[in-house]
């Protein structure tokens, strides 16, 4: 059977033999044309959405996973090919969990050498004064997920601020965005639904974040890494499992199998939703202590840190917004308040 198969010619150059079928368009293309198309598409995204200004210092969130590895590679290539004039820097976060990060950080270090990009590893110790291992020791295993979720979300921003970076790029791909649209729609989170297709977010207070791979299919990212022989560390999704996200992901995979364009179709839907003007949106302020986006006076991370530092680890796990003004004013807490927060009942 195999011998009977005719070699398919690349639909793009009509010269080379096709090496793959593009998951996004269904076209059979050769390796070189695929690289070209993939890179040009990212370039188109960057130029059309005006993601960068010449001279900017751009941090690439590098986890060692496939998305950020491909992102770093493509940005490096395009920055040279099209003279973006960007200063690129890889930023990795080390949570300080012994054994956990070793492999992925090794990958990031190898990437750095291959791409000749500067790498900065920021540790929780540096950012928060606490490693994840120390936190677990203090608060117990049961509550540490509150900490790791909140701290991880901010770590990249805090690291970038330390390094004086103008913008952060993350490796979110089209699948991630489509999945988020579905999830926010199903959960009825209208504020996030409106924001989640934006290619750049958080321009006030925090450092703007952008997603140059917004229109790149996850499967094409894997193909690109595979054919470019890029070295990546395959981590499972590190975020705590979320029931809705899991469902949305499975649904999206089923949709894609039926109609490959469904991923882009959902993003198109998300980009063209129009929210009624009289629907109230939560006001977004910034944390008075660290400048991170927060709807409260103090952001969640700062409240958690305050709790850790005062020896009251339950602060920030429950609802203790009433205490924020006291924390802000550096006032001592009453005895009753202290008692409530100290008891750690694992």
């Amino acid at each position: 059977m195999r011998s009977a198969r005719m070699p398919v010619k690349c639909s793009s150059c009509d010269a080379q033999r096709a090496a793959l079928r593009r998951p996004k368009t269904g076209h059979s293309v050769c390796k070189e044309c695929f690289f070209h198309a993939f890179e040009e598409e990212v370039h188109h995204t960057i130029v059309s959405a005006k993601l960068f200004q010449p001279g900017e210092k751009v941090g690439i969130g590098a986890s060692g996973g496939k998305d950020s590895t491909v992102l770093a590679h493509v940005l490096k290539v395009l920055n040279e090919r099209y003279h973006y004039g960007l200063e690129l820097i890889l930023i990795s976060v080390d949570e300080g969990i012994s054994g956990y990060r070793d492999d992925s950080l090794e990958t990031v270090k190898r990437n750095q050498q291959q791409y000749e990009l500067p790498l900065k590893i920021v540790s929780y110790q540096e950012l928060y004064g606490w490693t994840m291992d120390q936190i677990v020791k203090t608060v117990g295993l049961k509550n540490n997920c509150t900490f790791c979720g909140v701290f991880r979300r901010q770590a990249l921003d805090r690291g970038a601020m330390m390094l004086g970076v103008n913008k952060i790029c993350t490796g979110h791909n089209a699948d991630d965005i489509a999945e988020t649209v579905l999830m926010n729609f199903l959960r009825g989170d209208i504020a996030r639904l409106r924001r989640c297709t934006a290619i750049t977010t958080g321009s006030e207070g925090a450092i703007p974040r952008c997603k140059p791979l917004k229109y790149a299919y996850e499967k094409e990212i894997v193909l690109y890494a595979y054919f470019k022989k890029l070295d990546y560390f395959s981590t499972e999704c590190i975020y705590s499992p979320n029931a809705y996200r899991g469902h949305a992901r499975a649904f999206l995979k089923d949709l894609e199998a039926l109609r490959p364009s469904a991923i882009m179709d959902i993003i198109h839907s998300g980009e063209n939703l129009s929210v009624k003007e009289d629907v109230r949106m939560p006001v977004q302020g910034t944390c008075t202590r660290c400048g991170y986006i927060s709807s409260q006076g103090l952001c969640k991370a700062c409240v958690l840190l305050e709790g850790l530092n005062r020896g009251l680890p339950k602060l920030g796990i429950g609802k203790h917004h009433k205490l924020h003004h006291k924390l802000l004013a550096q006032e001592p807490l009453s005895e009753a308040e202290t008692r409530k927060l100290k008891v750690v009942d694992f």
Binding site: R22, T25, C33, E40, E41, Y215, E271
Partner: peptide, 13 residues
Amino acid sequence: AFCATQVSQHLSQ
């Protein structure tokens, strides 16, 4: 997404 799709079509043909 609309234009990105067209760019993809264009580039792979």
